[in-house]
Nucleic acid binder design. Structure first.
Length: 611
RNA sequence: GCGCCCGUAGCUCAGUUGGAUAGAGCAACGGAUUUCUAAUCCGUAGGUCGCAGGUUCGAGUCCUGCCGGGCGUGCCA
């Protein structure tokens, strides 16, 4: 089932082309700004009239006379300076609803993309030896939604969790694990003896016994970091040696590193499961994966004269980038101490994604502060001809999560707020609300509802904000029952489910009433409004996915829930007469399916049967 | 200094290649519950879209300048 707006766009554009005798015509069909203008409006005639220097209203008349859309709309009306106003026929609306109802694939009548692409999405990207914190929330959640939407439309999505598991800090990570082993050894005679006699065996033995969780590892890492900052030359030298050892693949260093990686990834996976994010172990492809390609990246850039030595470092100077003195700005791919950095890794990753993963598009979901980095990265990759003109590189950026004070969200002591603590508190608060509103539910149900609502609220708040702007984090707002929040959406869904449960006690067989449904009765305004909105779901997804903006989807879902709530208060369902009831049951069913699909399939937010 | 992002109702924010009278939610005020979950609905009030120019049939949206804020700006990611 084609999207209505696309069909209208095509037909009107064609009619414009016929009227104007040229091919570059765009109807620019949009939702009407006001119900009195109908459902859709075409804005393109005025621009075209200007281009071909003619009277826009006359042109509009010509276009309309060429136009055959009687299967969809009432006769179009020309208004104002040259708008074409379109009102959907009620037959068309009911036809669509029935088609959605009959969709056996449960896709709510939404078609897959005619030309599926291979799209790599790079997101989440936690770091080794660090707990996920609020800074990872947006990338993880928005990236996941983008993947889900693209996949639903039939694209081949390849998730890439580009974790920070290589580079400068790894010396300290190795040191941290080693410290943990020493701590273990200090009161263990056997390990003590091994330490002097057989260091290799000591490493294996102590690692086997070590039982660190990520929190403990992180705290060791932080201590190491602090010790380094204070500045002991010996210690500094030791960390540097560990880093070099790791980079040269010394087994001792590698097994410590690998242990830290395992501890970290295990905990991250817990977070993904808790967040209902689709990432798994197979999506992990961190910086370390590219470590052996870095030399070649720099070498190729140097050989092709794209990179040059400057102040000891190897730099690329892409066109159009200037520094503060107005001189060309470097994209450093190798430091003067010959170490590689994230620019190098990112270039290696681009090559891998295009050559091995066969990406048509690569989408990076990272915060807005990295904008310049990605602009230079893309420019460099294109200069090197590693990325063809037919391949799209997108930096999907987002703003920061702020605290009440307007500064990036931190704890009182100035640390990043841990994601786990944030989610725990959200669930805790949601639980208090469930307890208050619905104390009679069994405890396990209350817990499930609290988890769905609490975590859903955090995610939904993130989605519903325009991703490019910063937003102020507020439990009170995201858990509010009014407004564009997860609980409001979940409540609307729960109300429909409640009707369904009630139906059984009233001997109403919903399945039977919906199965043979052929005629609908949309006489009430609230019914018609809801019906029209339901058939637009595909348009909302398209808008959200084509600009990677989940807030378009949440805005649609919210409005849908509002229209449902209006319908719910005005139109009794189960007590309606036999002529009205099937239509109303269908509206309930399709609303529930749409909300569930949007929340649970596309946003990864659980719905609940009762609240 | 330069670059990027932003500035919309008291607050938080939507606003889709420039479209008709700029929209929500919160807060405020008024109303609706013998009725499928009131965790709801309906209504009222609230605006110089930072300021000043410009482009045009038409600007919150595009251009220029200014004011205010955030971020970035050669060896972190």
């Amino acid at each position: 089932m084609k999207r209505t707006i696309d069909t209208l766009e095509k037909r009107i554009s064609d009619a414009m082309a016929a009227a104007a005798g040229r091919s570059d015509c765009a109807a620019i069909v949009r939702l009407s700004t006001d119900p009195k203008f109908g459902d859709y409006q075409a804005n393109g005639v005025m621009a075209l009239a200007k281009k071909i220097k003619t009277n826009p209203r006359k042109l509009a008349e010509q276009v309309v006379s060429n136009l055959d859309i009687a299967d969809i709309c009432e006769p179009p009306e020309i208004a104002g300076p040259g708008f074409i106003n379109l009102r959907l026929k009620s037959d068309f609306i009911t036809g669509r609803l029935l088609q959605i109802n009959a969709d056996v694939e449960n896709r709510l009548g939404i078609e897959k993309e005619a030309q599926p692409r291979t799209i790599v999405v790079d997101f989440s990207c936690p770091n080794i030896a660090k707990q996920m914190h609020v800074g990872h929330l947006r990338s993880t959640v928005i990236g996941d939604c983008i993947c889900r939407m693209l996949e639903f439309l039939g694209h081949n999505v390849i998730r890439q969790n580009h974790i920070g598991d290589w580079g400068l800090q790894m010396g300290m990570v190795v040191q941290a694990i080693e410290t943990a082993c020493f701590n273990l050894t200090s009161n263990d005679k056997y390990l003590l003896s091994l330490l002097s006699e057989n260091p290799q065996k000591w490493e294996n033995e102590s690692l086997k016994r070590i039982d660190l969780n990520l929190e403990q590892l992180e705290s060791l890492y932080i201590k190491t970091n602090k010790a380094l900052e204070i500045g002991h030359p010996d210690f500094e030298e030791r960390i540097r040696r560990l880093l070099v050892g790791l980079q040269h693949g010394e087994t001792g260093c590698l097994i410590f590193w690998s242990k830290a990686r395992d501890i970290t990834l295990k905990e991250c996976q817990r977070m993904y499961n808790l967040l209902n994010v689709t990432l798994t172990g197979k999506d992990i492809r961190g910086e370390s994966f590219y470590k052996d390609d870095l030399h070649e990246v720099v070498d190729k850039l140097l050989k092709s004269k794209i990179a040059e030595k400057s102040e000891g470092a190897v730099c690329v100077f892409p066109d159009g980038f200037k520094n503060k003195e107005g001189q060309r700005l470097p994209f450093i791919v190798q430091k003067s101490d010959s170490a590689y950095l994230y620019a190098t890794t990112d270039l290696a990753a681009i090559r891998y994604r295009i050559n091995e993963l066969k990406a048509d598009k690569i989408v990076y979901v990272t915060d807005a502060r990295q904008k310049l980095h990605f602009e230079m990265l893309f420019a460099t990759a294109r200069m090197a001809k590693w990325v063809g003109d037919d391949i799209e590189l997108s930096h999907v950026m987002f703003g920061s999560v702020l605290g009440d004070d307007g500064a990036p969200l931190k704890t009182r002591s100035g640390e990043n707020v841990k994601l786990k603590e944030l989610l725990d508190e959200a669930v805790e608060r949601a639980k208090a609300v469930v307890e208050e509103k619905n104390p009679n539910l069994p405890a396990d149900k209350k817990q499930k509802i609290a988890e769905a609502v609490g975590i859903g609220a955090v995610k939904y708040a993130d989605y519903s904000n325009n991703r490019t702007s910063d937003y102020v984090f507020s439990f009170d707002k995201m858990l509010a029952m009014d407004g564009n929040t997860a609980p409001y959406m979940q409540y609307a869904y729960a109300r429909i489910k409640s009707i369904e449960r009630k139906a059984q006690t009233k001997d109403v067989d919903i399945a039977t009433e919906l199965a043979g449904l052929e005629r609908l009765d949309l006489t009430e305004l609230a019914e018609l409004e809801l019906a029209k909105y339901l058939i637009r779901y595909g348009e909302a997804i398209d808008a959200a996915v084509s600009d990677y903006r989940p807030n378009y989807l949440t805005a649609y879902l919210y409005e849908l829930a509002q229209k449902f709530s209006a319908f719910y208060t005005n139109c009794p369902v189960l007590d309606a007469g036999p002529d009205k009831r099937p239509t109303r049951l269908l509206l309930c069913d399709l609303t529930a399916r749409t909300i569930k699909h949007g929340l649970s399939e596309l946003l990864g937010i659980e719905v609940v049967e009762q609240m």
